[in-house]
């Protein structure tokens, strides 16, 4: 079937099976391999993408659902420069093997949009659908928290 949607800011016409998993569509058809798969059943968050600005699991979405939607994957998350979240992940050492990182970054984006100044508990809650096996989460929380502080300061 034909699907028209916006992928990373670009109007995109897709020709695909309607029940194709979105994670496969992104990775195999569009070459957007930054979206990872690690469980296929919604238990790990590695395949997180933003759909109309909200975090969703691309392993539990099918192609037809994308019609008319705006999708952002990790590849389209930064524009001219690195997004501050990505920068914070680098600076705070939030990246080890990196397989959870794209999903974590987008989960953080969803959080900061809803709550620009989250505390550590709120941050931990917001990334609780994204498993990380390397970091123990602490530096990921550090990275996101660093941005919350920036928000607070700029408000003053």
């Amino acid at each position: 079937m034909k699907i028209r949607c916006i992928v990373n800011g670009k109007q995109t016409d897709l020709e695909t099976a309607p029940d194709r998993r979105v994670v496969d569509l992104l990775r195999e058809d569009l070459g957007l391999c930054g979206t990872k798969e690690a469980c296929g059943s919604g238990e790990c968050g590695a395949c997180t993408i933003l759909v109309d600005g909200e975090s969703r699991l691309s392993c539990l979405m099918i192609a037809a659902q994308l019609e008319g939607k705006e999708i952002v994957t990790i590849e389209g998350f930064s524009k001219e420069h690195l997004h501050p979240i990505q920068e914070a992940f680098i600076v705070h050492g939030a990246v080890q093997c990196g397989f959870c990182t794209p999903g974590m970054v987008l989960a953080a984006a969803d959080l900061l949009k809803r709550n620009p100044a989250p505390d550590r508990h709120e941050i931990r809650r917001a990334i609780s659908g994204n498993l990380c096996r390397c970091t123990g989460y602490q530096k990921i929380v550090d990275a996101i928290e660093s941005l919350a502080r920036v928000e607070e300061e700029s408000d003053e």
């Binding site: 989960a107 969803d110 609780s128």
Partner: peptide, 9 residues
């Protein structure tokens, strides 16, 4: 319930 992305969906 579940996790944030599960709650979104």
């Amino acid at each position: 319930l579940g996790s944030p992305p599960v709650r979104h969906m």
